[in-house]
Write a protein that binds this DNA or RNA. Sequence first.
DNA 1: CGAGGTCTTGAAGACGATCAACAAACGTGG
DNA 2: CCACGTTTGTTGATCGTCTTCAAGACCTCG
Lengths: 243, 243
Amino acid sequence: MGTADILTRRLEQFGPLSDEEKQVLDRAISQVKEFGADQDVVREGDRPSHSSLILEGFACRQKHVPDGGRQITAFHVPGDFCDLHSFLLKKMDDGVVTLTPCKVALVPHKTIRQITTDYPYLTRLLWFTTLIDAAVHREWMLGMGRLSPSARTAHLFCELFVRLKSVGLTEGNAYRFPITQAELGDAFGLSTVHVNRTLQELREQRVLTLERGILTICDWERLQEMAAFSPDYLHVGQKIERN
Amino acid sequence: MGTADILTRRLEQFGPLSDEEKQVLDRAISQVKEFGADQDVVREGDRPSHSSLILEGFACRQKHVPDGGRQITAFHVPGDFCDLHSFLLKKMDDGVVTLTPCKVALVPHKTIRQITTDYPYLTRLLWFTTLIDAAVHREWMLGMGRLSPSARTAHLFCELFVRLKSVGLTEGNAYRFPITQAELGDAFGLSTVHVNRTLQELREQRVLTLERGILTICDWERLQEMAAFSPDYLHVGQKIERN
DNA sequence: CGAGGTCTTGAAGACGATCAACAAACGTGG
DNA sequence: CCACGTTTGTTGATCGTCTTCAAGACCTCG
C-alpha cells in the first residue's frame, strides 16, 4: 500500500474492497503534490485533467463574488476527494484552496474513466462520496438560511468532529482547527466581527474552547443540541452493497 | 417511446444515446404517480426503494428545522431526477414536496443498480446529473451567503429560465412561475414580507413582471447583471464522452 | 358570492455589518 | 533567544437591513 492508503481506508468505510480494487486505487495516483497555505489547488473556471485527493492538511472550496469577496462552500480534510466532480463536470464552478500546508494526491481523469468502465462497485463508492458532498451542501444551506449564527457555528464544529473522527484525526474530544475567523465568516456568510462574537458566546456557554488552533468540545450533548445536529447526513459507516 | 421520453431527452442533452440505452431507460420506469399540490413525494428520513423523476409540475426539496420552519434546498422541474441520490444515500436527508400538481415517474433502485453494472456510459450520465444538483447547491450557497436579496431573487429567475428553456418550457422570455412568496422566502432564507419588497424592487427596475403565475423577463441582460449570473454551473449542453 | 390563501403595506425593533482602533499571537531573521 | 512585523483576534459605537407583528386588499375557486 502506497499513498492511496487513506483513500482505500476512506472508501472501505462504505463497503469492503477486494485486493484487486485496492491495487486499482493505489495505482490510480499519478503524483503527489505539496502545497503551502493559501495556495490554489484548482482555480474556479479551470478544466483540470485530474482530480485531487487530500492526504494531509485542510483545504476549502470557494466561489468568487464580483465585488471581490468569496463564499466558502466546503471544508476538506484528509481523505476527501475534493474535486472529484471535475471528472464529469469538466469546468470547475468552484475553486479549491489550501487553508494550511497540504499534501495532495492527483488522480488522472483518464484513470477514473477507466474505473467507471471496469469497476462498477468502485464507481458506486466514488459516486457515493460526491453525493455526501451534496448532502453537506444542503445541510449548510439549512444553516445559512434558517439557523442562528451560533447554531451554524456549533453545527460546523459537530460536523468536523464526526468527519475527522472517521479518519482518525481527533484526540479525545479535541481536534486541530486551523481555520481563521475570517475564513469562518466567508463560509457562514457573516462578518469576521460577528464570527468573533459568536465564538465568544459559545465559549461563555462552556460548550467548547478554541485555543492555539485546537478545538476542544466540553459538552458534546449540548453542542449537538444547540446546532440541531444529527450526523445522519454524513452517512459515516453506511454500507454500499457490492451486488 | 413511453413516459421516459422526457428522461431520454434530458440525458441526450449531455451525450447521444443508443437505441438500446433508450430502451433501458424507457423500461426503467415502473410506475407513474400523480400528486396534488403540496403533497410529499418522499419524506425526510424515508428510505425509498425507488427514485422519482418529475414528468409534469413543479416540486422542491426541503429540510425541516426544529422550530417548525423549513429550508428549501432546490426547485425541481420536469425532467429532473429529484431524488436520484437516494439510490446510494438510502436514507433521505431531505424531503421532496410538490409545489403544484405533479406527474412523477418511479424508477426502482434495483433497476438503477443494474444500469450501473451494465451501462457505464448511462451511469456517468446519471452521476453527472447529481453533480449538477450539487453545483446548483453551491450557487445557492453563494447567493445566501454573499448576494443581496434582490440579486438572489434575480439569480433564481435566471436559473429557472435557463433550466426551463432546456426542456422547452419557456415561451419567448416568459415562463410559468407557480411559486409563492412564502416558498421563495423558505428558499432564500428571507421573510415573506422581505421577499415581497424585493420583488417590488425588481419590478420597479423594470427587469421583469410577475403576474398570475407568469414570469416575464423584460431585460435579460440587466437581470443577469444584477444577479451576477453565468449559466456555466448548469452545464446545459455539455457533452460527456462515451468512451 | 363567500372563504381561504396570497399579496401588500406600515411601524417597531432586533440583528448583523461596518469602521476604526487596539491587543495578542505567530513566525522570521538577526 | 529576543526583536520586530504581520497576521489574527478583540472591542465599542453607529448605521442599515431584515424580521416581526398586525391589518387590510386582492385573487381565485368552489
